[in-house]
Design a protein around this nucleic acid. Structure first.
Lengths: 264, 264
DNA sequence: GGGGAGCGTG
DNA sequence: CACGCTCCCC
């Protein structure tokens, strides 16, 4: 038996919006402690992780661990039927074949109920070990989204270079090249004027080439978090983390592209 | 070697927005005294002039005169990557094959660099003699833009009639006719309440028919100047001038349409 | 607070 | 391809 309630449907809507472009269907693992999702994208290049802790729900109950296979397209359609400030409750009985969603309007005067057929999903579970990253960038998620959008008009691939000085995003295409450097700033908390600081923690400088179309998908998580953390390590996927306040986080891993220069 | 800096990218953005619809690619002539551009539109009906004086830049250096052929679509894409209050510096070395643009955010914490491939552009240089205009209208550029937009919903062609009393813009189409008269006002400077005065200096009344779609393009320059000056003379192109404060101006010339009544 | 531009959806 | 929504700029 699963029952979980969120006071604002908008949160769940944004979460599903952020992953549904990458993943068609995914297993949601419900346990006492909360909900987890792990899914490769269709082309097996990007990995999405979602964790929502039980404390983040206004009501949470999960008698025994249960995995629900959900088509994200269908779920997204149903969530479009919820107003942003509806309360949303999801329910499933043990070995249920459907997920039940109930939306209640803020004024309690409208109650909507939807049932979503569950599916069996073969999951290629990938273990992602915790790594010691060589570089960690923290920046405004909105600025991240803006940079990705800007560079998409220049080329298909972005190079992310993290150094002690800051992080550089660069791309090139037929019309020319573009590069944006965000300087590392010591965070100044006493000055409330500091809006969108960027910080770079470096053990060793790292550089990676990534397909912008995936980053463009990741950037859809920007509405969920003020900041994004980019974790880089040589010869391993880059991790993008958006912390969802009070409830969890969403993480994307993207394998770097083989550098063309090394391709020869 | 060329180096020129503007404190506000928004100025350059607006300038390029104002000409890019008319001109796909254009030669920018850099000299010690500033930057000039002269370009016919695709259909060779409208002529665009741009002059930016060196004093208007926060930094200007041009060792020797140089002509840079620039694709305005590509340049516009790059300028979209600048925030409005970024500082923008453009650079080109002698006989360079690329134009370099550097944007620096107001907080200095973001520096973006773009390279734009230059191109060879055949230019049909037209000499436009200084003329004694029969009528000169000065009016609010915003009101000009509004009138053009309004009349576009009536017809394709506007007739501009300047008399001592004022200036009349009129159009007609299938649904009917429209006409807007702006009365000549003696400029009253002591009354600060006077918002958008129109003045008409007349030597001789003039009337011209012009294609509204071009005027609609010219009106894109309205954000650059509070006022527009319209200069009319019989049997010659109409000149629209937008003065860009402290730095120069942008002018459009448009050949009048042969009056249908005289076409018979 | 209103208008315009870019993006996603039907 | 057009409409509506959202973010950004004025």
């Amino acid at each position: 038996m699963i029952e979980a309630t969120l006071p604002q449907a908008s949160l769940l809507k944004k979460i599903i919006e952020a992953v549904k472009e990458l993943v068609d269907e995914a297993n949601f693992d419900f346990s006492e402690t909360g909900i987890r999702l792990q899914a490769m994208d269709k082309s097996h290049v990007a990995l999405s992780f979602l964790h929502l802790r039980e404390e983040g729900f206004s009501e949470y109950r999960c008698d025994r661990a249960q995995t629900l296979g959900i088509g994200l397209g269908s779920l997204s359609k149903i969530l479009k039927c919820a107003a942003n400030d509806d309360q949303v409750q999801i329910k499933a009985s043990d070995s249920a074949e459907t997920l039940e969603l109930a939306f209640e309007s803020a004024g309690k005067d409208r109650v909507s109920e939807f049932k979503l057929k569950l599916m069996d999903i073969d999951t290629d579970s990938v273990d992602v070990p915790d790594m010691d990253y060589q570089a960690t960038v923290s920046m405004s998620s909105q600025e991240f989204a803006r940079i990705v959008r800007d560079l998409l008009s220049i080329g298909d691939t972005v190079s992310i270079d993290a150094t002690k000085q800051g992080v550089r995003f660069s791309a090139s295409g037929d019309d020319g090249k573009g590069s944006i450097l965000l300087k590392h700033q010591k965070t100044v908390d006493d000055e409330k004027n500091t809006p969108a600081n960027t910080t770079v923690q470096i053990n060793e400088p790292v550089s990676h080439s990534l397909a912008l179309k995936y980053l463009s998908n990741f950037a859809k998580a920007a509405p969920l978090a003020d900041r994004v953390t980019i974790n880089l390590i040589e010869d391993a996927p880059v991790m993008f983390e958006f912390k969802i306040s009070d409830i969890g986080h969403i993480r994307f891993y993207l394998a770097p592209q083989i550098d063309e220069d090394m391709d020869v």
